[in-house]
């Protein structure tokens, strides 16, 4: 597997966060093989604590603060969406 595990805060949008996100979510979700597109908010538990930790996970990985307008469920409801959101935030000025 050729994924980048140590995301550099000033990386570009080619960084793939999906494996990191999956490792994080596996503490919370027991579903054996949920796909990158599965809605984690429908799969299992989303407690207030987990939601907060998920936001903090993204913030820590990118050294940013997720502003309230971005705290949108659509940015967080699947591995693919979180990945897309993180890439977008990590490379605000690319191209």
């Amino acid at each position: 597997m050729n994924t980048v595990t140590n995301a550099n805060p000033i990386s570009n949008s080619s960084v793939d966060y999906r494996q990191d996100i999956r490792s994080f979510l596996e503490h919370f979700i027991g579903e054996e093989d949920f796909s990158d597109d599965d809605d984690i908010f429908e799969l299992g538990l989303v407690s207030s604590l987990m939601a907060m930790q998920l936001v903090l996970f993204v913030e820590k990985a990118l050294s940013i603060r997720v502003e309230s307008e971005d705290l949108n469920l659509d940015n967080f409801r699947s591995i693919a969406r979180i990945d897309a959101f993180m890439r977008d935030k990590a490379a605000p000025a690319h191209d």
Binding site: F41, E42, G44, L45, V46, S48, L49, A51, M52, V55, S68, E69, L71, N72, L73, F76
Partner: peptide
């Protein structure tokens, strides 16, 4: 944490309040 709880339950800022559009309501776990 409560703000995140509200936002992830579909509440959005509208003026001074958070307002829910009452769509995409998940099933009870």
């Amino acid at each position: 944490m409560m703000f995140v709880t509200y936002r992830f339950a579909g509440f959005k800022e509208e003026g001074d309040l958070l307002v829910n559009d009452l769509t995409k309501i998940p099933a009870l776990p």
